Simulated assay, not measured.
Amino acid sequence: MLSTIALDTQVIKPGLCTGCGACQGMCPYWDSVEGRTLCYFDCERKDGRCQGFCPRMPTDLDALRRQFFPADTILPEIGPFLGLYLTRAADPAIRAGAQHGGTMTALVELAIKEGFIDAAVMTRSQGGLEPEGVLATTAEEVRACSGSSFQVPPTLAVLNKALREDRYHSIGVVGTPCKTLAVYKMKSKPLTENDNHADNIGMVFGLFCGWGLDWEGIRDLTAKHADPAKVSHMDIPPSKYHSLELRENGETVSVNLDEVTPLVRSGCRYCTDMTAEFADLSVGGARSADGWDVDKGWNQVIVRSEKGMKLLELAREKGILEFKDPPETGLDKLKGASLGKKRTGLKNLRGLTGNEDDLGYLNPSKELFQEL
């Protein structure tokens, strides 16, 4: 089967595409327009990097985990686990522009400064709208990527271009679960004769993710409630608030989540990873007994690899991050939330295939999900 036909029939048409960009930046065949993945030409290759890297093509997740993580570190609900931490950037300037505590910005900035990586593939947006993938090499460029966007840009096209150019030899990647999975598929070198310089991937920084939204839909919804040019930030607080928050001129505008959920991308409904399990460390918004007013200024961090632990401890040593103890129930609650997303994704996949035993792109790893 030709690679473009496989991606079209197995990923694009069934609505599984995440818009990550893993298929782009390597050849002129694939592109993206406002979150929609497009193929301009048929390809005559019987396999290809686009097919090999796509996070929604069949993947043996168990084999991929064993290749990169010790088996005794893997928790079934959240993947590789060396520790859970609550942190925030010590620099108030980083926190001021951050989604929550600014931990990711501070860590990536430190990783570049200390030589863990020499560049970072990140996402830059305008208050959460019109995001684009960028390659950041300075602290200023990293900080310009603070905040989050619920539109999903093809960030990995930037990574593929950087790998192809072979200019940087330790590239960091910041991404949502679908993107970090694609990066680890690159690192596994599925096509050994042409692996796209995958050894130049230095670190992977995962972002917790519930879902992404339709580009045009969230743009229109934002304009309905605020002036998009004046929105500096958007966020989804804990479920009890049932809202999307827009920050316009320093004031918070709340949008009922019932207006938001119809805009969730189709591909996100089949995702079973909330915490970006394929990463050196993963960062999300904090959850504690202190309540949202406190938690929105902090992050929770899962460390997954020794390299991730080394960077986090260096951030502690140098005072780049502030730490506080996670709640005793923090890990159990995180596991529960992650498990909920897995079960929802599995239910939707079974509905898509029409077969209880057919988990679509997860079929090579079906045994990992049997207990769910």
Rank of each mutant, 00 (worst) to 15 (best):
E130H: 15
E165Y: 05
L156N: 03
E165N: 10
P131G: 09
K161L: 14
T176M: 13
L135R: 11
H169W: 06
T176S: 11
V158W: 02
L135D: 08
S148M: 05
N160Q: 09
G175Y: 01
R143Q: 12
A144M: 07
L156E: 01
V158A: 09
V174E: 05
L135E: 10
T138N: 05
V142F: 09
V134A: 05
P131W: 00
T138G: 10
L129F: 13
A139V: 12
S125V: 07
Q126R: 14
F150E: 00
R124A: 15
T137M: 12
V173M: 02
Q151N: 01
F150Q: 08
T138H: 01
S149N: 00
G175M: 10
E140G: 12
E140K: 13
V142W: 03
E130F: 14
T137G: 05
L159H: 07
A136S: 06
I171A: 03
H169T: 09
Q126T: 10
A162W: 01
N160A: 11
D166W: 03
L159Y: 08
E141T: 08
H169L: 03
S148Y: 00
S170D: 12
R164H: 12
I171R: 04
E165V: 07
V173E: 00
P177I: 11
R143W: 07
T155D: 11
L159G: 02
L135K: 13
I171W: 12
Y168R: 07
A136C: 07
L163C: 04
Q126M: 11
A144G: 14
E165R: 12
Q126H: 13
S170Y: 06
S170H: 12
H169G: 13
A136G: 03
V152M: 14
V173W: 00
E132C: 04
V134G: 08
I171G: 01
A136N: 01
T137A: 10
Y168E: 06
G127F: 09
L129C: 08
E130W: 13
L163Y: 12
R167L: 14
Y168C: 07
A139L: 07
C145D: 03
V174L: 10
P154Q: 05
T176V: 15
F150G: 02
P177C: 10
V152K: 13
E141K: 12
R164G: 13
V134E: 02
V134M: 09
R167I: 07
S170M: 05
L159S: 00
V152R: 14
